[in-house]
Structures are given as C-alpha cells and as structure tokens.
Design a protein around this nucleic acid. Structure first.
Lengths: 185, 185
DNA sequence: GCGACAGTAGGACAATTGTCCTACAATCTC
DNA sequence: GAGATTGTAGGACAATTGTCCTACTGTCGC
C-alpha cells in the first residue's frame, strides 16, 4: 500500500481517537513506521493532512451511502441503516464519540479553515437522508426530517460516549424506528 | 475579585471556546493579566485547573437548576426551561457547541482522568430532569425520559454548531415541547 | 553503465509547551 | 518597627511542537 494512503489512514484513525489538536506529526509517523522527515515529502503542513483526511472521509461516506442505497430495498430500510450506526459502532462511539460530530466541533473551536469541509460530511448525510424521505413521499419536509434523524444520532452518540448505557441506546433506536414507521403510511 | 477565581473563570471560558488541549497556561495567564510564574502559585498543574473548572461548573449547574426549580411553577415548565437552552444560548452554541457535551467528548478522547467529573455534570442534568418527570407522574420511565431530553439537546446543539440553522432549532424545540405536553395528561 | 528522479532517513530550527525555582513586593501579626 | 506570611514577577528548564533542509538509497529510462 502506498505510503501516502497509509499516512492518511493513520491520521484518520488518530484524529478520531485523540482529536486533531492532540495528534502530532510524530505520532502519525510512528504509527505508519516512517521517519518524520519522510513525512514532509508527502504533506507539507498538518492542515494538508487534515484536508486529505476530510477528503477521504467524504469519499468513504459517499461510498457507504451509495452502498446502502443499492443494498436496501426501501427508503425506510435505508434510513434504518443510518439510525443503526449508533448500535453497530457502539464500541468506538463509547470510546471516541461520533467521528463527524466530534471533529466538526473541535474544528469549530479551533476556528480551523477546514471546518466547512467537516460540516460538508454532515451535509452528505443530510442530503442522503432527505432523498430517502422524499422517496417516502415527504417532499415538503424531507430536509426537516433529515435534520431530526441527524440530531437524534448525534444526541444518542454523545450520551453513549458519556454514559455508555447500551440499553438506553437500543431503546431510543427502537423508539425512533417506530416513529419513522408511522410516517410510512 | 480573588486571583484564583479570576483564573478559574478565564480557564472556564477558554476551555469552552478553544478546548482544553488547545488552551495553554500562557493564554490563561494573559487573559487574567498575571505572569505565568504567579500562575504556579495557585495551580501546580493544568489538571488542577481543569478540576477547579469542573467543580465550578458543577456548582453553577446545580445553582441554575435550583433556581429553575424555584422559579418555575410546574415540572413541565422546568423541563421547558432546559429545552430552551439551545435557543437561549444559541449564539455561543453556534460558535462553540454545548459546553458539557464538547468537553466530555474531548476528555474522553484524551483519556483524561477528570472525564468522569465532566460526565458528572451530565449526571446532574439527568437527575434533575428525572425528578421533573417523576413529579409529572412518570416515575416508571423518568430516567429514560430524562435521557431522551438530554439527547435531544445534545443533538440539536451539535447541528446548531454545524449548520447554524436557527429556524430548525426553534422548529425542533417546539416539536419536543408539543410531545412533552402530550405527556402531561 | 549513467543520469534523473521519487522516496526515505535523520536531524536542525525556532517556537511553544507544562513545570518549577528564586527573588522581590505587599500585607499582616505582634 | 521587625518578622513572618502571602502573593507576584520573571525567567530557567527539558520536552515537544510544526516546519524545513540535506544527504542517502533505490529504481527507472536510455
């Protein structure tokens, strides 16, 4: 595997687990197993790595959603896949929170120029969810419903990270699904 | 005002606006207008400041909730006060997110020993909300309802920070209030 | 074989980090 | 007023930060 991709992958993981500010050039280089000097050959600044990571995440997100669009037959099932993230990834979420939400708020605090790109990942989810609700026949408030589902997953992820209460998470997921099913009539 | 309190206040604000990791001794000292050396007289380590800040936040939170308990006549009104936070503090939330949620997740990523104390602030809100739902006659699922309301505010705060969409925030607040009112019958 | 070039290693660089020490100023006690 | 205590200033300290440079190794086309 190309060194550049290895760097992006390691940075992606470390940014998620430790935060952007905390993660240093040295720790990324160590994780990949290359020298700090070589690092500079691939990325001039830390911001450049962040941009590459955000680009990768954007691509991964799009690919994941495209996969769901294909794999799940109905729009409701697709939304359910999204809602289930907090259960599927509960292990990581309990430890590090939601990758999108935590990075977005960290970049907001840092006043980082790439903040908009991080918000863009939220935007991809938002648009995709909106599409599903449109297909469900809720064109008028599709975006509003998308935001509600997005907010749900962010709220549950934050509490999951804080309390680690798996019963609550599953309870709330089931509750939202029930609400969404009553929408599909 | 005592220097120590000034330090805690400045650190509290800076931890919120810039994050814990980003905020340095130097920037706190500069904000207060004292020398870095004097700083050491009041707090030996950065962790000590964090602990003092968390203690202060815990006290502030308890005082605020006690005030609401007195000021608002019904438990439903009290819960509404909480829900309204995302509207009342929208300016700060759009810029820096929720003070509790963002600090908790940052400390989680850092693996910081004070993480539990930060989660404790969430716990104070959780318990207080649970009390209100008990008074509302929902003893059986009071804590579950408390978690739902907590998750709501975290979700809306995260999206408010990401998108800055005030219409959505107000819409969702009104929506939750309607749901809560139907609970009070 | 040779020159060009992508990739890597190691380390220099100034700046900043958290931590800690010593010396001075102010205030209080007796 | 003398002495002790509390508070403050300024700077030293090693470690780490992001950034950048130079020298070496391998591989390629010719």
């Amino acid at each position: 595997m190309g060194t550049r991709k290895q760097i992006v992958d390691a940075a992606n993981r470390l940014f998620y687990q430790q935060g952007y500010e905390r993660t240093s050039f040295a720790s990324i280089a160590e994780a990949v197993g290359i020298s700090r000097g070589n690092f500079y050959y691939h990325f001039k600044t830390k911001d450049e790595i962040l941009e590459a990571v955000l680009q990768a995440r954007l691509g991964d997100t799009r690919a994941m959603l495209a996969g769901w669009t294909e794999a799940a037959a109905t729009p409701l099932e697709r939304v359910f896949r999204f809602v289930d993230i907090v259960v599927t990834n509960r292990g990581d979420i309990e430890l590090y929170g939601c990758p999108v939400g935590t990075l977005t708020s960290e970049l907001a605090k840092l006043g980082h120029p790439s903040r908009a790109q991080a918000v863009g990942i939220f935007g991809v989810f938002r648009d995709w969810l909106g599409e599903q609700f449109k297909e469900l026949g809720h064109s008028a408030n599709a975006d509003d419903l998308a935001l509600q589902v997005l907010a749900f997953s962010q709220g549950v992820a934050t509490l999951s990270n804080a309390f680690g209460d798996r019963d609550y998470v599953e309870r709330d997921v089931r509750r939202l699904k029930t609400r969404l099913m009553s929408l599909d009539t």
